[in-house]
Write a protein that binds this DNA or RNA. Structure first.
Lengths: 145, 145
DNA sequence: TAAATATAGTTTAAGTATATACTATTTATT
DNA sequence: AATAAATAGTATATACTTAAACTATATTTA
């Protein structure tokens, strides 16, 4: 008989299950636009903060710059983004959405956010606020500790 | 100027950051045992519930059976698990930990759980309990809705 | 029983992700 | 200014992950 898991481990497992359940729905929604979750993240980030360099994009998405390379190659090939030489730094490339990428983002970003809100709405407004505050404090505490 | 993100989206982003921060620490700990997070999940699952068939392993870890194949190939090669023919079902394989796998699990599973508890301890006990309950209810509600 | 259906495991193709080493350029030191 | 150190992007090797098609075995059903 395996011993009962601690509350901490069960919290960690709940976190995984919640993420998995939401990611499943969000991924299905994005697939109808031929977007993967990783590509959506790039699209949404460039939509909110245009004109980023690849390293800045990597930092904001919590991935490595090497990861960004392949992602942008595929998105460039799909006509969603372009790379332009940085005017002041010969090493860097400015990444921008194409017209097609912007049009797509205008449609898919709000739908994505709406689906997130719909998932969160299974909790009462009070529980939703409590969860938000707890996770925000948790995140900050992890960053310090 | 991008509009301020909704509370729901910010909650979702907090969830990602918390997972990322914890996964970073947990991954580093596992790396000192030459284990990837995915391989640890298999190891811990077989440690807690021995004698699973590959599909059952996939179900419990929320991954596809195809994923399990390559994972077990690598872990078999590393001497951590073995596959035996199922006595009653000619299609299936029972997966078991080797002696080496069991020894490793005995050491690494408690350390892993301790690190999870240590991360959670940045929250007060009351906040930890609140988070546990909220996530548990969230998980159940997502499953129904 | 024979045929249809379902299931367990494998393979393949595509995408995601990291660490590491490498090139080119920029910034800091001396 | 010349050198050293740091940084941006790329390439490579390895691993993880899925969806889909496939093989072999079990189960259902007609």
């Amino acid at each position: 008989m395996p011993p009962r898991l601690s509350q901490e481990v069960r919290t960690w497992l709940h976190l995984h299950r919640v993420m998995a359940a939401m990611n499943k729905r969000l991924t299905a929604q994005l697939a109808s636009y031929n977007l993967t979750p990783a590509q959506f993240d790039v699209l949404a980030q460039l939509f909110r903060t245009p004109g980023l360099v690849q390293q800045a994009l990597a930092d904001r998405l919590l991935v490595t710059k090497g990861n960004i390379v392949g992602l942008l190659n595929r998105m460039e090939h799909a006509g969603l983004v372009t790379r332009q030489p940085h005017p002041d730094d010969g090493r860097a490339h400015l990444v921008s959405l194409t017209a097609h990428g912007t049009t797509l983002a205008t449609q898919v970003v709000p739908e994505h956010e709406a689906l997130i809100a719909e998932c969160m709405a299974v909790l009462s407004p009070e529980d939703g606020s409590s969860l938000h505050d707890l996770l925000r404090r948790f995140k900050h505490a992890l960053r310090s500790g």
